[in-house]
């Protein structure tokens, strides 16, 4: 099934993540990944959701029904920069350690911890490149694997600008803080 990448700007209020996740589930769409964090504007968060579906028009419209959702963009067919990160704990015996290090060089991965028999490596890239890297290091033995959700940003001058939508966003509390 086709996957769609949807980028949302949301008001940063308690519960907004579960509202968005709950809505997508309720309307019958499967979430492949979801990433959320602060945006360039205080009080506004940006989410990237990857959903499996032929058509996301309904889910986009339904997301707009959520009061805290400011902007929804289906960027699936737009030119975007897409990134995921993977952190892996690999078996690393003294004999394989060198090979792993050079493989990390090829993929621009970072070695962030070295133990007696294990190594932790961190790698960031397009979803395909991350996938590729995981396959390449799999033969060494993956002890633990952790992947972030995908984040996506439209290339060029076009995009979603939180500052355009929000004049005076509040902080993390329920409402905007009392004007002093």
């Amino acid at each position: 099934m086709k996957t769609h990448t949807i980028v949302l700007l949301v008001q940063d209020r308690p519960g907004v993540l579960s509202r968005v996740a709950g809505l997508v589930r309720r309307r019958g769409y499967n979430i492949q990944s979801l990433a959320v964090g602060h945006s360039e504007q205080p009080g506004v968060s940006r989410m990237t959701i990857v959903v499996e579906s032929e058509d996301v028009e309904q889910v986009v419209k339904q997301l707009y029904r959520l009061i805290e959702v400011i902007k929804v963009s289906d960027v699936t067919d737009d030119p975007t920069v897409e990134r995921e990160m993977v952190v892996l704990k690999l078996n690393a015996s003294s004999s394989s350690r060198h090979e792993i290090v050079s493989m990390c060089g090829v993929f621009d991965a970072k070695i962030v911890d070295v133990g007696a028999s294990t190594m932790i490596v961190e790698m960031t890239g397009t979803p395909a490149k991350v996938e590729n890297f995981i396959e390449v290091v799999r033969p060494y033995g993956i002890r633990e694997l952790m992947r972030t959700g995908r984040i996506a940003m439209v290339r060029g001058a076009r995009g979603q600008f939180a500052t355009e939508y929000v004049e005076h966003a509040g902080g993390n509390g329920v409402p905007v803080p009392a004007s002093k």
Binding site: L9, V10, Q11, Y64, L66, I67, E68, V69, I70, K71, Y165, V166, E167, H168, A169, G170, P175, V176, A178, S179
Partner: peptide, 10 residues
């Protein structure tokens, strides 16, 4: 404070 403006950009 009854005078806070609605903050509902979405």
């Amino acid at each position: 404070n009854w005078d806070q403006k609605l903050n509902l950009p979405g």
